[in-house]
Design a protein around this nucleic acid. Sequence first.
RNA 1: GGCCCCUUGGUCAAGUGGUUAAGACACCUCCCUUUCACGGAGGUAACACGGGUUCGAAUCCCGUAGGGGUCACCA
Length: 503
Amino acid sequence: MPVAPGQGACAFLIGGIMMSNEVRVRYAPSPTGHLHIGNARTALFNYLFARNKQGKFIIRIEDTDKKRNIAGGEESQLKYLKWLGMDWDESVDVGGEYGPYRQSERNDIYQTYYNQLLENGHAYKCYCTEAEIEAEREEQTERGETPHYSGKCRHLTAEERAKLESEGREPSIRMVVPEGKTFTFNDMVKGTVSFESEGMGDWVIIKKDGTPTYNFAVTIDDYLMKISHVLRGDDHISNTPKQLMVYEALGWEPPIFGHMTLIVNESRKKLSKRDESIIQFIEQYEELGYLPEALFNFITLLGWSPTGEEELYSKEEFIEIFDANRLSKSPALFDTNKLTWMNNQYMKKIEVDRVLELSMPHLVKAGRLSENLTEEEQQWAKSLVSLLQEKMSFGAEIVELSDMFFKEEAEFEEDAKEVLSGETVPQVLKAFSEELEKLENFKADEIKAAMKAVQKSTGQKGKNLFMPIRAAVSGQTHGPDLPQAIELLGKSKVLKRIQKLIG
RNA sequence: GGCCCCUUGGUCAAGUGGUUAAGACACCUCCCUUUCACGGAGGUAACACGGGUUCGAAUCCCGUAGGGGUCACCA
């Protein structure tokens, strides 16, 4: 069966031996910052694709721009990939047979190949200075042309080169862009995409400082690391022809490319790091007490959809059902609202102890609890979390949800004031406080019984019974299960609040 | 501006020539619960526009409009 160009073969014959073409994909972060949701999604789809195909998932660190690398960037990237639940087969930390996995350690490798390109005439040294190029660009712009390098160093003679070098000029190396050529590839998500070489301009593959540029390093590495599919963000699509021309110049078979849409913000633009409408770093979600499995689930459903109607999946299920053909072609907006809902779905299902773990740091930070709790306090905190668990969307929410339990006095909302102005309220509260006084243990079931007693003695029931009590005790008309909330509040605080109202 | 890509409810989205155009979030209503919440049942709401092709188009083709991406010795 013939295979479409650029499709790559699933299997091919070498010397009569059937070699299976293993799926090898990579996530290639540049350690310039923390793990971003957009990058996390790219990593996630690569991971899912690899695991679904029983292939390899590789992480390569793209640190060719020394100026932009930040301390701890690499560790942070790996840490949060792991936190989200991913694991990998080859990388800087676990090694692998195609290393090194840090581009800054592969300079000698790049050298081999740019020398090859220099020799076969696909690349040349360029002695232009930054100022010269800038001037050229300005001229072109003034003339209304699309700025691109003119290629003036392309045909330098050996003498001219020697002269420029004797002036102390450091060369960069540029790719010779073939004229009148169309680069076409079959994109896994977009279908057939093509670019004309016209107007591209001979681009730099090696900077003056000797380090490779992104498009060059990526090509060499992807090939040498036997990457079978390059699944990356849409913003890389216009880099593809540059990379294709390197593959071609070196006589290599390119991988299959797939360009996934970007995640956009509320104004439908690519997320910028400065965007404040959306929390952008995975680290921040961890800090806020989100669940990694929920985030994993949510991000996977951004730009990809399963066949059925179910939306909640575990990592294992996603691996099972992942199909790159179902990647969306149009950009997705990050809907915080839905993430919140989804995280709550997971929150309701996990063990109380885990919710407690997610909540404690926030209670401590808010000054509600101290770090070292007595056995009794620990128990109380656990009950509190357990009571609020089903309402929590993420850990940090515990602070506002538990507000009423930490205030000496209730703060009354408008609705609550209205409830408390009811005619029958005083008698209900009075009766209730008398019932509470009698209680030995002050446990939820006793409290519930006390309410029952109040109902009998006052004749008030339903809303007329519960709302005044809730409002008096919490200052609100909404909240968690009343008897339990009252138990947690504690006898003295509850009585004090009620007595204050009935004078 | 050049090049490339995209366009189904407010949002995420299913849909691959014939459907009453799924489902989820959000919103609204009702039911359940002696309160609240949970849960359950309903509801409002979409194929950007204009031409073709076809017996038939959200689906195919061509335009138009809108949006986005990218144009570095950044990745």
